[in-house]
Amino acid sequence: MTTPAATDPVRELALADALAWEAARLAEIAAGGRTSAVLLWSCEPALVAPSRLSRLPGFARACTRAADAGWPVHLRATGGDLVPQGPGIVNLTLMFLRPQGAAPRLEDAYRQLTAPICEALSDAGISSCYGSVPGAFCDGRFNVTVKGQKFAGTAQRWRPMAGGEAVQTHALMLMRTPDENTVAILNRFYRDCGIDQVIRASAHVGLHDLVQSDEGKTSQLGFLRTIADRVHSWSACNLSERGQSTSNQSLPGNSPV
């Protein structure tokens, strides 16, 4: 079945454009120009590393070798560790203004980010929970896991502003389980950086492996539409409570979340 582009809830972007969109929206929120922003997006194959890795002596060589293999390396502002990007991955960026002393704190922000993901999984008959998964890339306590495997990874960035913080939250969702080639690229990058860490493909699971194979595309679209509906409701609620909000603004095309 061919899905009209206008109904696809995911924006296809160049990774650099997506990262620039996030940086611009966070700056706008911190400047008091917006109260929230939402983007559901996907991009070309690449590796994304937190900026702290760029200080490692082997980082330049690791980047060169990854780029030569078709995986250019970009730096990002949120915390965490090295992640792959590409067609089998969909990202959810959710940003908001947090008034000083008010909820949510870090833990609540992760729950707010992952709630629509867990609800969409539940709607598809898949139960999920939070947890660390040894061997998963960019492992963390607030992964969304299914049967002990990592389905989504999460990260945040908080920026102080007058009267509170501008908060960027990000989830990386696996539509397809990373293949051995992707995992080999990640492991070689770590070796080149001198980091003693091994990623295992079996620590992850993609949506297509959680549903019947002949229903994969339909299930993925339904899953992502559910998330889009949930975050749109969240954004609208945020808009009515605090003022201006934005979804997918300042981007080419016209299919908002």
């Binding site: 949120t78 915390g79 965490g80 560790d81 870090l106 922000a109 908080w158 920026r159």
Partner: peptide
Amino acid sequence: NGALIAEIMVEKSQFEIT
């Protein structure tokens, strides 16, 4: 006052310190 001077990370969350 207000300039970004440091970053700390906890639970994969990066916090800016001004």
